[in-house]
Each structure stands twice: as structure tokens, then as C-alpha cells.
Design a binder for these strands. Structure first.
Length: 650
RNA sequence: GAGCCCGUAGUCUAGUCUGGAUAAGACACUGGCCUGCGGAGCCGGAGAUCUGGGGUUCAAAUCCCCACGGGCUCGCCA
């Protein structure tokens, strides 16, 4: 029998048998939903129930052990091929032992016949889902702090697809806003020289940082000139900012002397600069042709670099959504009008504010949104005094637009943006889009920091994703040269690329996204510590056996696989579909990473202890070969879900 | 000041949602294993008062409260 979820079959069989017995003795206990757990080790079976420990609470006269002993004879597992035995143990656990003849056969047959589809269990409720991720500013390269975003977002999309959802990946190009105007302003000022040998996103990033740095310094200096009118604290604060920006300036003067000099020379250093930058921003929102040309050109250049970075690590998108389009086509204005009609918008002079807190209270949403009752949610500024809009304002029509195409929207956005994401959701409530509000998920991840400081695109203080990938590939090439000198140059290049990129991705995905990560080079390029090369190595070893065998096993007798290390692998293989379900339904891409390490571990133990090709009988060899083949399929499928390529050789 | 997230061997992490049997891995440290299929490997050893303190429970790394430490947020930035 082929099953999309072999361990699930065993689980259901145990649950049915257990419920039936419970309904005879303790009908009140059957309404519990979670009856079975995975025991800490296999001497306690493959599944275990502690219902009796709980049941004993209400029946003080009976010990859990006694209750379990009474129940077990009523659990009829004889007719169920998947269950070998049911026993009581310890304080009153009921342990279910799988029949490995059956489980092995079902698992291996299913994997070999489903092949690349093994692990994919279609949900009963497939949805159309938009995963918006990365959405990096189109004025600087993606840095390693942000890189967690595309990696998590892409894995999430892949896992959801495996679950049978229709997934569309969207990149939101944030080309409206002051920072873009700053970059474009600087770029035009130096008469738009094209990037020489530099990646265009790095090039624009440098121009942006230098421009913003010089503008900032001159602003701070002007502010300090009125020191007499300022409070001492304010003066201190300004001085400390000035010190920081001067430091940034020094760094850039050294790193990019030519551009720095050029920009310093061209930039008028009076208040006029800022006014002109703001004017450019206004002109762009208003859709004036010249501003459009300039800013689209600047962003286009940068996006070219971002796309290159993303596509080289295997992250692709279905849609590139320009934020400015929403402004120009009037949907931002329309949403503002609608929002005003809700009564949740108040004005402070020309400034419009959205009363997020009142929405949360009126709709009684605080508890649901994990906000404390007496915690006041800050209001959201929708429109500036000069009439321009803000990021989150524009995110409202964008979100509505996304919901025209999908039932569910997942925004992969850093945890630092929890508040605006909450305000966005409340805006949907206010607008009467309850259903959309409920189907909007902020997939939050903690930022990646460098030891000692936070990365800042604006300050140009970051390690770019590109250089991390480059370095990882370089390190991988060293290792390949050392370990596999006989491979062709072409193979070495391809392999080290895959190893390097895999290592970077793995480092970013293996940690629970809510946990903060401190970036260290060691984390990525120490291949003893980084598990990705280990997993790829395990795969290469397995494939090597397959190649040496020079035959495809048609009929394998899985009942010959009686070694504990073999059964450990089979058990793990049988659980892969459940892992994918958990990963997709609970949005846990990191669960796949944990799984694949554990499978590789078990395979390596097996590899070391058990011969596959030199066995006493051909049928045993066939059975083991089928097992090895199954391991290769599942390793490949699992790696593919987290966007890492499996390698034939390395 | 207020709110959110995180705290598990020297280091990095899994387990926390859904309480249950001996807290699971990796790095570093350490003792073994290449005439069997790839040693980026395998087998073993040592190393953890699960940040601290209360509470709930037959049972707490897991749930609740309070402290402490780290990160983030509270902008007419994104």
C-alpha cells in the first residue's frame, strides 16, 4: 500500500484502537484531542499515551498504572497490520509498538513510488496565498541582517506549495519615500555616472549613504549653531549624532574617496538641500514626469543588483509590485477617503491620524491580537503636513490589492515592524474587511545583528549578503580543492557554489525565526559547525552507493531490515510528511532544517555500521539499496523545501 | 517610563504552542575507528541547579506572577 503519510497511518491506527478501548471503559476521556505523544526513546515504542496519568487525577482510588493495565487488554491491535504490540510501562503509560515489517514496507514503497512528491500531503483546504517577502529598499544592497527575510520567505512559500496551496511570491518595491529621493538626488547631482565594475545596488547604496550622511551632518551643524536656544540635553544629543555621522563620513571617505569628494563638492550645504529632496519626493508622489524618470532610473539600477543577488541564491518572485503605482493610480487616495468615512481618522492641522487604539477597542480585538487591555496602541500618521503619505498608509491599499488576488496574505517582515503591521491590520478592520484582517499574517522574524552593533543601511554599516555568499563559496572551493582534487574545474566551481550558498541559507533558516541571531562568520563558513555541508555530504555518500550498485531494485523485501539503525532511519523517513504538514500549517520553515539534520545523522550511523553492497544475500542488499534510495529521495525533497540543492558529488 | 520578543553545558542551538518517562544535537575538549560502499564521517567520554525567585499541578525547561540580563518598538522614517 502506498501512503502519502506512512507514520500518519500508524498514528491513526493507534488512535482508533485507543479511542475504541477508552469508549468502553472511560467514555469521558475520549473527547481529548491529543491522546498520543512521541516517547523519548524507542524502548517505549513509537507512540505513547499518557491519558491514564491524567485520568487518575479524577479517580484517586486508582493508580494510573492500574488503569492502564485494565485498558490495554481492550485495545484490539491484532487486526491492525501496523501495530505490533501495546504495553503498559512506567507510571502508567500505554506504549504502541509499530510493526516494522509493515511500516518499512509502506514507507519505502511510498517513497519510491511517490518520489519527488513524497512529503507533500495536500491539505483539505487549499488556499491561494500571497507570500510577500524581502521587499528591501531599492537603494542599497541586501545586507546579511535582512537576508533572513528572503531565505525564510522562500522556504515558507515552498513548504506551503508542498501542502497544496497556490502560492504567489511578491516583492514590494518601496520606491516612495524620502530615502529614495535622497539617493536619486545624489545620483543626479553627480550627473549619473554608470557603475564601473561595481554591482549596481552596491553602487547606488554608496551614493545613498554618502549623500544622506553629508546632508545629515550639515543639518546637525546648522541645528547646533542655534545652541543658545537649545536645552543642554538637546545639545548633547545633537553633538552625539554629529559625532556618529562624522565617523560614518570618515569611513566612506576612505572606502570611496572618489564618490565622496564628488558628492561633497556638488552638494549645496544649506537648508535648501533638504527642501529640494522633499520637493523631489513630492514630485514623485504627484507623478511628475521628470521625477518619475529620475527615481525609476535610480531604483531600476538598484533593483537590477537585488534581482541578481536573489536569483543567484535561488529565490524567485511571481510579482514585483511598485509602491508608486498605488499612489499614481489613485488607490492610496481612495483608501484614505474610505478611511476618513469610518470615523477613525482625526486631523491635527493638515496631518491625518488613524486611531488604531479605538478600532481595537470598538471591535474588541485586543485580547485576540495579544495586546494588553490597558495598553494604548499608538495612532498611525497617515498623511504628512506637506500632503505626502507614509509607508504604512500606502501599505493599506497594497494589502487590499493583494487580497483581490489571494485569500490569505503572509507578510514576511521583521519583528521590529510589529506595530505598523498591527496598525495595518486594524485599518482593515476599520474599513470593514474583517475577513481580510483575519487572513493577514505578519510572519515576524528577529533581526540579525553583528556582534556589538546593529546593521544600518542608512549608515552604510553592514555586511552585504553578496559578500557573505562570495566568502562562503570561496571557503567551499578551498575545501573541495583539498578533498576532491580529481574533480574537473567545472565540477568544482558548480559544487562549491552549491555548498557555499547552501551553508549561508542553512545558517539563516535553522534557528527559530523569533530568536535573535548574532551574525558571525564562523556560523556560516565553519563547515564543521554548519550542518548544510554535512547533509549534502550524506546525500553524496548515499548517491555514491547508488551509482556503484549499477542497478535499480524493483522488488525489495523490507522485512529484512531488522537492524536498529535501519529501523531508526525508516521511522524518521515515515515521519517526513508529518514534518512538512507541521511546517506548513504552523509556518515553521525551520522545522524542515531540524528534520533533515536528524535524517542525515541516522543515515551516517547506518552507513558506518551496515554494508549495503557486500552482503550475505542479494535480497538483503536489495532491501538496503531500496532504503538508501529512499534516504536520497527524502534528503533531496527536504533540502529542496528549504531551497538547498542536493549534490551528487562534493 | 510603557509594550513586544528572547534567555537551555565554555559556545551555538532543538525541545516550550499541546506539561509527562533518562533535557536532544553541534562546535570546542577528550579516548578510539581508514584491506567494506566517500574520514566534510563513525563509536565512546566529560560537560546543564534549563537566568533567578515565587506560584499552579500527582507531574514544570514547558503554564502563571515577579525580578534580572540581551534585542526590538513607542517618528509627519521605513
Amino acid at each position: 500500500m502506498v501512503s502519502t503519510n506512512p507514520f500518519g497511518e500508524f498514528r491513526v491506527a493507534c488512535e482508533v484502537a485507543l479511542r475504541k478501548a477508552l469508549s468502553e471503559l472511560h467514555p469521558e476521556a475520549t473527547d481529548r484531542s491529543l491522546l498520543l505523544n512521541e516517547p523519548p526513546n524507542r524502548s517505549f515504542g513509537e507512540l505513547s499515551s499518557n491519558v491514564m496519568l491524567e485520568l487518575a487525577q479524577s479517580r484517586s482510588q486508582d493508580t494510573p498504572k492500574k488503569l492502564a493495565d485494565q485498558l490495554v487488554p481492550l485495545i484490539h491491535a491484532d487486526g491492525v497490520p501496523a501495530i505490533r504490540a501495546v504495553k503498559t510501562a512506567g507510571a502508567g503509560y500505554i506504549n504502541f509498538y509499530a510493526d516494522f515489517t509493515e511500516l518499512s514496507r509502506m514507507t519505502i514503497d511510498s517513497i519510491r513510488s511517490l518520489d519527488s512528491r513524497y512529503g507533500s500531503v495536500r491539505t483539505e483546504k487549499p488556499m491561494s496565498i500571497i507570500v510577500e517577502h524581502t521587499s528591501a529598499n531599492p537603494i542599497s544592497p541586501i545586507h546579511i541582517g535582512q537576508a533572513r527575510n528572503p531565505i525564510l520567505g522562500d522556504a515558507l512559500a515552498r513548504v506551503l506549495e508542498a501542502r497544496g496551496h497556490r502560492v504567489s511570491r511578491h516583492f514590494y518595491i518601496d520606491d516612495v519615500g524620502r530615502q529614495v529621493a535622497v539617493a536619486a538626488f545624489g545620483y543626479r547631482l553627480i550627473e549619473k555616472p554608470s557603475p564601473m565594475d561595481e554591482k549596481p545596488d552596491h553602487y547606488i547604496g554608496t551614493i545613498y549613504t554618502i549623500t544622506s550622511c553629508i546632508v545629515e551632518i550639515s543639518r546637525l551643524k546648522r541645528a547646533l549653531q542655534q545652541a543658545e536656544t537649545l536645552s543642554p540635553e538637546k545639545t548633547m544629543q545633537l553633538k552625539s549624532s554629529l559625532r556618529e555621522w562624522n565617523q560614518v563620513a570618515d569611513e566612506f571617505r576612505k572606502k570611496h574617496p572618489r564618490l565622496f569628494k564628488l558628492l561633497l563638492h556638488q552638494l549645496p550645504l544649506d537648508e535648501d538641500v533638504e527642501a529640494r529632496i522633499n520637493a523631489l519626493n513630492r514630485a514623485y508622489e504627484a507623478g511628475e514626469p521628470e521625477a518619475k524618470r529620475l527615481i525609476r532610473e535610480t531604483c531600476g539600477l538598484s533593483m537590477q543588483g537585488l534581482k541578481e543577488t536573489l536569483s543567484r541564491v535561488g529565490v524567485c518572485f511571481n510579482s514585483w509590485d511598485w509602491e508608486s503605482d498605488l499612489v499614481w493610480n489613485g488607490s492610496v487616495r481612495d483608501v484614505l477617503e474610505n478611511l476618513k468615512k469610518t470615523g477613525y481618522v482625526f486631523s491635527e492641522g493638515p496631518v491625518l491620524e488613524f486611531d488604531a487604539n479605538k478600532v481595537a477597542e470598538d471591535f474588541e480585538l485586543k485580547e485576540n491580537l495579544a495586546v494588553k487591555k490597558d495598553h494604548e496602541i499608538p495612532s498611525l500618521t497617515l498623511v504628512r503636513a506637506d500632503g505626502t503619505t507614509l509607508y504604512t498608509t500606502r501599505d493599506i491599499p497594497y494589502t487590499l490589492w493583494k487580497f483581490k488576488q489571494a485569500e490569505k496574505v503572509i507578510n514576511v517582515v521583521g519583528a521590529d515592524q510589529k506595530l505598523p503591521q498591527l496598525q495595518l491590520k486594524l485599518a482593515l478592520w476599520a474599513l470593514g474587511n474583517e475577513k481580510h484582517a483575519r487572513n493577514l499574517t505578519h510572519f515576524a522574524y528577529s533581526l540579525v545583528n553583528l556582534p556589538g552593533y546593529t546593521m544600518s543601511g542608512r549608515r552604510g554599516r553592514y555586511i552585504s549578503f553578496d559578500e557573505v555568499v562570495d566568502e562562503a563559496i570561496r571557503k567551499a572551493l578551498d575545501e573541495v580543492e583539498k578533498r576532491s582534487p580529481s574533480l574537473s574545474e567545472e565540477e568544482k566551481t558548480k559544487i562549491s557554489r552549491n555548498i557555499g550558498i547552501g551553508a549561508v541559507k542553512f545558517a539563516l533558516i535553522e534557528v527559530d525565526p523569533t530568536k535573535p541571531v548574532v551574525f558571525t562568520w564562523d556560523r556560516v563558513i565553519n563547515f564543521e559547525r554548519n550542518s548544510a555541508p554535512y547533509i549534502q555530504y550524506s546525500y553524496a555518500r548515499a548517491r555514491s552507493i547508488m551509482r556503484k550498485a549499477e542497478r535499480r531494485v524493483l522488488e525489495a523485501d523490507s522485512s529484512l531490515l531488522i537492524e536498529p539503525v535501519e529501523q531508526d532511519i525508516i521511522l524518521k523517513l515515515s515521519k517526513f510528511p508529518e514534518t512538512v504538514i507541521d511546517s506548513a500549517d504552523n509556518l515553521k520553515p525551520d522545522a524542515i532544517a531540524d528534520y533533515v539534520i536528524a535524517l542525515a545523522d541516522r543515515f551516517n550511523s547506518f552507513y558506518n555500521a551496515i554494508p549495503v553492497l557486500n552482503t550475505s544475500s542479494a535480497s538483503l542488499s536489495d532491501a538496503r539499496l531500496a532504503l538508501v534510495e529512499s534516504v536520497t529521495i527524502v534528503l533531496r525533497n527536504a533540502l529542496s523545501l528549504i531551497g538547498i540543492e542536493a549534490l551528487e558529488k562534493m
